[in-house]
Design a protein around this nucleic acid. Structure first.
Lengths: 352, 352
DNA sequence: CTGTTAGCGCCTTCAC
DNA sequence: GTGAAGGCGCTAACAG
């Protein structure tokens, strides 16, 4: 393996000099400088990151931990993070999450200068370890009283969805969301549900709630059961767009026409939502990544904790419509194999 | 910051002992062991990764470098990688790629035990640096004579697409793909094009080729120009599903009915392809990640280079059909705002 | 301008 | 079983 010593030797200089050219120190004669660079190139030398990190106390990389295979929305957030981090001259490394104890063996100290947690709130024990390792943490899509972070008002989101369905004339509305077992307070799915429930309560209506672990498949099952039941809803509000996709699949399978027989509202506005014409509560995903990364950078500089909230807005596309009146009759057979027997209309797009 | 020395001091033992409990050495009395563990917990101590890496020469993490914001297919590959790497007890870190020189400041040595390059072929200079840092490399979705890797037969894929369109009766076929400026041999887009061209040539037909930097938007522009031209094609083969989505958008905007007025074939079979009913050449994306990761693990153990090829298959959905005969007449106005005025039929799905 | 040297935090022999 | 000490590759602070 090639080390700085070998380079120094081969170039006939001291290691200090090599280090200086490596780090662009001005105090190197142009002659030796080019000599050293040449040897470096010849040997294909690259400084050892661990040694450098140990010596400087900085790694020059920021970490992001996120459940980004299980949540499509996360990829869009990461896009924003990536840009900001790169612009700031840091490397970005991503940790995926599978295990129930994602923060267990992370070993951030000496590996990361800072950590951004996306859609994932670290346990207090983990936070203590980060602090003890001198690694600042910022949050995206979750909140913590002592950590900087950017989030949204999930209650408000639930409200937007419910009001939309209500204004269309729906009265039998169901919610398909995540399990709410979360140890630390409510999950975002729970807050969205509550937000919707408040609106319906005020209107004297009830929200039928179905929960399962997050995922399209699980949502599909939930919705299928709902639609096969005695008194199927005329509208379903899903806790996320992924889940809404599952609901759409269930509707298709059950021979429900969307939005004719069933209205569906999602949450997030991920890219696919546009493709399938899903009506949804949109949150600025990429922007959340941008802001989160900025908060982390500020924390690196020792800034005070700041918490931000991003705005939500309802995007009406083609999966919601007023309820039809022919319900309660015999379940209709499949009308088409596609999700929409009427062409999907994206009302948020420009003309044509 | 908490160090091993501080832990040792507070526990009234030597640093060596702390190190031993940290690494699960047997030679520690149960008494001191628990004492140390308690202090560790109290202090929220976590060993410094850099120091450990420098000392052991191993980091316990594998890296993946991939263009995964620009190529949706990559996310599915990563899913496979992630599983294998985690099962092998390694950490996984992902590097995204934006800059033209993605391998420049990677600083792999002392940061990674191995590197997996996805859809990205490192330049020889970079490979030399990796070798010189003692970091083995494996490839996914690209090939190199001296590196282990898993890939597909792009020519074959182009052939599958072309034959499908030919068998439907299309004669005016266009290809929408990537720029082919790549310094190292042909790009995959180029190979797919050539595969299709061979088939058409044999049939005495010509392939109209349009190229732009990879991306949905770019493909959209290309297709729009094609469709607005004098003699628009009756079928378009896109170099990737992302690009096929762009083509579909262009068709919609131009008032073309798919597959009535225009057939579209993609490549990859990413998740959205299912949602929009895209006919496409499917490659086992997740599986490619699995195999690639395995190759890297073997390389870590000093195994010989192996190259693998994964199988392709054509998935016919609802964006391809025989050409209609009414072409050449006045361009039709928009018939719907959605992509399919006929309901998307997914012929690969089961019943219902 | 440049060579030399003392750590960075940890692991790992080696004596005790 | 346990403490002490050398060294991993590099940077930074010193002399020269």
């Amino acid at each position: 393996l090639t080390t700085i010593a070998r380079v120094a030797e081969r170039a006939g200089v001291g290691v200090g000099t090599v280090s200086r050219v490596l780090n662009g120190s001005a105090s190197v004669s142009e002659r030796t400088r080019s000599r050293v660079l040449q040897v470096i190139d010849e040997l294909g030398y690259e400084p050892n990151a661990a040694a450098r990190a140990l010596s400087t106390g900085r790694t020059g990389t920021l970490g992001v931990i996120a459940p980004f295979f299980t949540q499509p929305s996360v990829v869009e957030r990461l896009r924003g993070v990536s840009r900001v981090v790169a612009d700031a001259g840091y490397h970005l490394v991503l940790f995926d999450v599978e295990h129930p104890e994602p923060f267990a063996g992370l070993g951030v100290g000496g590996r990361l200068d800072g950590l951004l947690c996306v859609s994932l709130r670290p346990a207090d024990a983990a936070l203590e370890r980060f602090a003890s390792a001198g690694v600042p943490v910022a949050l995206v899509d979750c909140e913590h009283p002592r950590l900087p972070g950017v989030s949204i008002d999930d209650f408000e989101g639930g409200r937007l969805a419910a009001e939309h369905l209500l204004s269309l004339g729906h009265t039998r509305i169901a919610y398909v969301g995540d399990d709410e077992h979360g140890a630390f307070g409510f999950t975002s799915s729970a807050r969205r549900r509550i937000g919707a429930q408040r609106v319906l309560s005020a209107a004297g209506l009830e929200l039928v709630v179905r929960r399962a672990p997050h995922g399209r498949e699980q949502a599909r099952s939930l919705a299928a059961a709902l639609l096969a039941g005695d008194d199927p809803p005329s509208a379903i509000f899903a806790g996320s767009d992924s889940q809404a996709l599952g609901v759409l699949e269930a509707a298709e399978t059950a021979g429900y026409d969307v939005p004719g027989d069933l209205s569906v509202v999602g949450f997030d506005d991920i890219e696919v939502a546009r493709y399938v014409g899903l009506t949804t509560v949109a949150q600025p995903l990429e922007q959340s990544g941008v802001q989160g990364a900025r908060l982390l950078l500020r924390a690196l500089e020792g800034a005070e904790r700041t918490a931000q909230r991003l705005a939500l807005r309802l995007v009406v596309r083609s999966t919601t419509a007023p309820p039809s009146d022919d319900r309660g009759t015999t379940p209709r057979g499949p009308r088409s194999h596609g999700w929409h027997s009427s062409a999907p209309v994206n009302r948020t797009r420009g003309s044509s």
